[in-house]
């Protein structure tokens, strides 16, 4: 007896239902509201694996098992290059990305209908079969981070506005002098008056002001906007 069924790792109520829509046999049901997690009816499923390829979360897996066999085949969605080759030995990873064993790649399906998500079928031992969620894509660089002693105490200054090269300490000095009204602080420090028109630094200036004044950014008032929104050469304007 051969059995085919899917596993679905979809546990969060998100608005998503392509699995339901693609299934030709109504074996997956999301229903309404669309945020419900999918329910699966194995008796209607023929193991076509369309849902495995379409799931945007890459969280559906097809399991094929045969009575009496100590092997099973897992078909998983795979979006990396190069694709594994048929017959290749692959390291099998579990839900946490830990290596749980090895498997043989039995099929690689990557046609137009999968839309870039290849279906990789890996034969694994029954013992690890249901835990298999991925295959190792490449040797990862897992160099361990190094513990650093004596960090944190010292204040290191840095630019808060790159266009006008204003240091955080300069901004703080002005704020301590009582210049906490954003338009004034901008005029004195030139934060936000450079090439990027404040797209990066305005946000930083307001959150710094918020820290200094104890007011929320919302209470500090919104920034002003003057034309043009991108720098335009005078020659272009008056050419």
């Amino acid at each position: 007896m051969k059995r085919k069924y899917i596993l679905i790792d979809c546990f969060q109520d998100i608005p998503c239902n392509p699995c339901e829509e693609i299934c030709p046999h109504k074996a997956i049901e999301v229903g309404s509201p669309i945020t419900r997690t999918p329910r699966y009816y194995e008796e209607r499923c023929d193991g076509c694996a369309k849902c495995v390829a379409v799931c945007p979360g890459l969280c559906i897996y097809l399991v094929e098992e045969e009575e009496g066999s100590d092997k099973m085949t897992i078909t998983l969605p795979y979006e990396f290059l190069p694709l594994p080759r048929k017959g290749e030995l692959a390291s099998v990873l579990d839900y946490n990305g830990r290596e749980v064993g090895q498997g043989i790649v039995k099929r690689v399906k990557n046609t137009k209908s999968e839309n870039g998500t290849a279906l990789i079928s890996v034969e694994v031992s029954r013992a690890i079969g249901l835990a298999a969620r991925n295959i190792l894509i490449r040797k990862t660089d897992d160099s361990e981070p190094e513990l650093v002693e004596g960090e944190r105490e010292s204040f290191t200054d840095f630019q808060i506005c790159r266009c006008e090269e204003v240091l955080l300490s300069e901004l703080r000095t002005l704020a301590k002098m009582g210049i906490v009204f954003a338009p004034n602080l901008r005029r004195f420090s030139r934060v936000g008056l450079g090439l990027c028109q404040g797209k990066a630094c305005s946000e930083l200036m307001f959150s710094e002001l918020s820290n200094i004044t104890g007011m929320t950014v919302g209470e500090l008032g919104h920034p002003k906007a003057r034309p043009p929104v991108r720098p335009i050469k005078l020659r272009e304007l008056f050419g």
Binding site: C10, F11, I14, G57, N96, G97, R98, N134, I137
Partner: peptide, 12 residues
């Protein structure tokens, strides 16, 4: 989203 997190989690 959990499924976005899980795509990374399954890569370790």
């Amino acid at each position: 989203y959990q499924v976005h997190r899980d795509k990374l989690r399954k890569l370790g």
